[in-house]
Design a protein around this nucleic acid. Sequence first.
DNA 1: GCGATCAGAT
DNA 2: CACATCTGATCGC
Length: 686
Amino acid sequence: MSSFQGQMAEYPSISIDRFDRENLRARAYFLSHCHKDHMKGLRAPALKRRLECSLKVYLYCSPVTKELLLTSPKYRFWEKRIISIEIETPTQISLVDEASGEKEEIVVTLLPAGHCPGSVMFLFQGDNGTVLYTGDFRLAKGEAARMELLHCGGRVKDIQSVYLDTTFCDPKFYQIPSRGECLSGILELVRSWITRSPYHVVWLNCKAAYGYEYLFTNLSEEFGLQVHVNKLDMFRNMPDILHHLTTDRSTQIHACRHPKAEEYFQWNKLPCGITSKNRISLHTISIKPSTMWFGERTRKTNVIVRTGESSYRACFSFHSSYSEIKDFLSYICPVNAYPNVIPVGTTMDKVIEILKPLCRSSQNTEPKYKPLGQLKRSRTIHLDSEEEEEENDLFDDPLPVPLRHKVPNQQTHHPVVFPMTEVSQNQPENLRQSTGCIKAKSMKTSLWANFIDCEESNSESEEELPIPASGQGDPSPPPQQKTDVEVPQWDVFFKRNDDTDCSLENFPSSTEAGGSQSPKLFSDSDGESTHISSQNSSQSTHISEQGSQGWDSQSDTVLLSSQERNGGDSTSVNKGSYRPRVKENLPGSQMEQNVLCPKDTYSEDVNVVSSAGEPTTVSSGKHIPQERKLLTLSTNADSQSSSDFEIPATPEAELPKQEHLQYLYEKLATGESIVLKKRKSSLLDT
DNA sequence: GCGATCAGAT
DNA sequence: CACATCTGATCGC
């Protein structure tokens, strides 16, 4: 749960994800995603009054977040005051103080966060430096490195501060199975059940929150069965989601909710009220998405755990694991990192102790290089700097932040450190793991999955329509299709494949889909890593059961382990078809920027939002090539390196050549200082 | 009547 | 093991 108070030290005149107290004075508001704990005060009368008085105050968010927010009547008063900004489109915003007329320019770039539909991170660039607010995020290892706009001139931008989602920033959450592994486990469990008969149904016991949509869409696509939900009008302009959902209760896959759902389930009743179909009783299992985590040295990682005769937990996480957070932060390597979340059971100090070694603010006093004689300190070397980078430890002293004037050249301000200190950022992951500054504090590494229920909420109680006890009523309005340009792209991250148009013929009837009565529970496409329980807890190396005894009735329950899974994305149709972003689709100026890194931050390809805030200014400012809208999932489901996102390779990055490395190592060995010329600057990037 | 807050359940 | 949210009760405006 976010405890971020809304303001960043560098840009206190804007507020992000908090809209109460001090934030009532902000010159601009930003919403990273549509979850309740990031919307505090957003519909309070105080803010409503502020809007009425301050006509230049706007809320900025992604197109999908805007769509989701405005679907709720409680937030509709924002309609004229929300400006959506396309993903990965640097946009200039004027921050005007309406009392004094004082004006400040800032460039914001939205980066996909992989947390829920519409979720973004905000990258701000202005006179006080570049800062990144992550919101909530789930990014697999290496994904920051593939985000073009985090880079400049082939290296990561010089970032002053990161305001970081630290939900699982505790060594006990060392690893969480990847999105693909979790999805795969759920797909196979669902398959094993619903293929038995048309009367076998699954209930996905999901919370009232955005974030499960990619689960629904993938299940729907895999089995040709739409998922039953209470409500779908928020997706009316997102056909890629909408087409996989239904308010018709006759499907075999349910994600409907009801306050008494657990009680219903005891009586074999679905939350939507049905117990039978064609007067034949349904056979129902429940699958509860929960976050499961595993220790650093845990080998076994069951993504499905049986918790009762007909109940399962399935691994599912909206947030990055400890190792994913460390990978992300060490790659970004900001001067400062501030936690947005203090996980229960830990303290602010402990989280800071974890983040600190991954930041530049503490990397100039590494004792471990002392034996190298002249290399007493891992000094940062500026390529071409006009001013010394602040090298003090700013971490515990967020204010005041020294004013940094407009950066003439991002690249020249990025400190280059010796390769050995770069190890934690830029080495291959196997090396990186062992060079972390974090002590693997004798965490007990349980063989069992740890789990918590999934969090997040976006529900609006007033929107929860009572579910009729019977009847086929479909209260939702007929979906209105819009043209492509108006369709918010929700799936920058979550789409599993990009080339399948989900037309209606992709949805065979449920009997068709369920009629196979396959003797095999699933095709063992990923071989060793998928296991069929034959039910006695004896083979516990591959099976997790909670509470352990007496569920013999389902002797062929599927329990999946992600251990050494290499087919976690075996369900992905785009396996082996990783599609890097095509350079030719980028505007020329942006390509130049990648190479040359313009002198002026603002000379990037930037959209400008006028103070009048015409939304069209932004939304039409830059055409996003379809190539970029239909990003696909990566095919690699290895939990350590997988990406469920398609993010292009690091721009301009190149592998260090042997002779260059040789040169650097020789310098290191002799204790000479290393001075890098600009054109060689990409040497250390890989 | 509404919002903020807290305890308890999940 | 224990998260965050939801619900309902209470209080104050």
